[in-house]
Design a protein around this nucleic acid. Structure first.
Lengths: 236, 236
DNA sequence: CTGTTGCGTTGATAAAAATCAATTTTTCAG
DNA sequence: CTGAAAAATTGATTTTTATCAACGCAACAG
């Protein structure tokens, strides 16, 4: 089931995967010079909002939630980064502290590139710079899209959107042809949608009764994505 | 009344003002080569979401709302750009269509720089590129901040924040020492806060009764910004 | 000066969402 | 396999927010 033409999935995903692809050798080696592989287990925090950045992370595999916590500890997930994406560059490029926190949604393998190497590569690579500019500009589109959805859409609509978007992210994890399994806690799902987990449970139940999804424990399978897109009430 | 230390105003403003400042002559002249001054009256649309970009706009004076409209026509204002800022560069840098619409909140004077000139300047100016990267990274922080506020804060809190932020934007328009006047329609204010205009009116009335603000027609004066910051319940 | 029109305001009501309190199910260590 | 802890689910209730309808005021064209 392709979403082409029926759901604007590109407005929901960043484009940092392509940044390090096919770079000139010299620049690529600069980036790799002091890189370090790091394993993060499910739930582990990679960096915290307000912390001083020391480098960037390339996701070899795994999913990472980027979120902000309010003072009562409630998290709002801003974005779910997937295999192949890069995180942690905003703080370094902006010469600032981390604007958000990052934690592993599942066991992850990351490649850490120290700040100095990243900045050095940037210095001498117009291609890298150009790609970053393009990626960041696209992120603006994604985030402003998210803002308008939060401001204008109901919880049920937002949950439908979240399921559609998550299905794309979990696609790579299942064998082609096989049904996609969204494997995420109700609490994290609620923190993506921006509501209480009780509401998530209730609407999931409704979707289940309408035969749009199927659940088994925390796992969610999407059965009728077209209906979900209808419910999301979200076009163009 | 400075907000330093009591409200993180930098998390609410972009930093595109500095991008064109003190550029090397050669690059600056490239940008100016075919620039064109354009007047936009209050309410006039500068560009529309989905449109193909033809250049960027530097705001000589005036305020511009950047917004997204849903299919019922309700606008969500993503950001209010002020004198000195630049708009319209995301679409060009991202090689995409406009991610949002822009319209004049008041009479404006803009300097239009054609896409080709902007890209040419970019091509040969590492400083310009670097500044844009920094500005865009900061915008990520601003927008993710906005998302968490929409997801986690009540209408009353969001209105308090909007008033604090708008006061900063309207500061430049009033003589130093003089009281700041926020001059914006209730509908636009509601579309910033992300609620119905009736709710805005009701909470403004409450703020008025608590002596936090004063209103005269559409105009709003802030009397007690410290209390507003308390109400906004927004720290760090 | 005056009628019209848009905008701001108010009140009443309906709908949506959050919160609180249990209870059931799942997970996982031992 | 088993018991404890964590997570998911359900129901009842309160709070918040949106919607609908009406009215008053102010700006403005003629």
């Amino acid at each position: 089931m392709s979403l082409t033409g029926i759901f604007p999935i590109d407005k929901w995903n960043f484009r940092s995967q392509s940044i390090f692809l096919n770079l000139p050798d010299e620049e690529y080696e600069l980036l790799c010079a002091n890189q370090q592989e790091q394993v993060f287990e499910q739930g582990e925090i990679i960096f915290r909002e307000g912390g001083i950045p020391s480098g960037i992370y390339f996701i070899k595999y795994g999913k990472i939630k980027k979120y902000k916590a309010d003072k009562d500890g409630r998290e709002q997930i801003i974005y779910v980064a997937n295999t192949g994406e890069i995180i942690g560059y905003h703080a370094i490029l902006g010469d600032d502290r981390y604007p958000d926190s990052a934690a592993a949604l599942e066991d992850c393998l990351l490649k850490f590139v120290p700040k100095e190497d990243f900045l050095a590569a940037l210095q001498q690579s117009p291609i890298l710079t150009q790609r970053l500019l393009k990626a960041l500009s696209h992120e603006f589109a994604v985030l402003s899209n998210t803002i308008s959805v939060f401001a204008q859409r109901s919880v049920k609509e937002r949950l439908a959107i979240a399921l559609i978007v998550l299905r794309e992210k979990y696609k790579d994890d299942s064998a082609p042809g096989e049904e996609v399994t969204i494997n995420i806690s109700r609490t994290d799902l609620a923190n993506i949608v921006g509501t209480a987990k009780e509401n998530v449970v209730r609407f999931l139940k409704e979707f289940k009764e309408q035969q749009l999804i199927h659940t088994a424990g925390r796992k969610i399978h999407i059965i009728d994505i077209k209906k979900l897109i209808e419910i999301s009430n979200y076009v163009s």
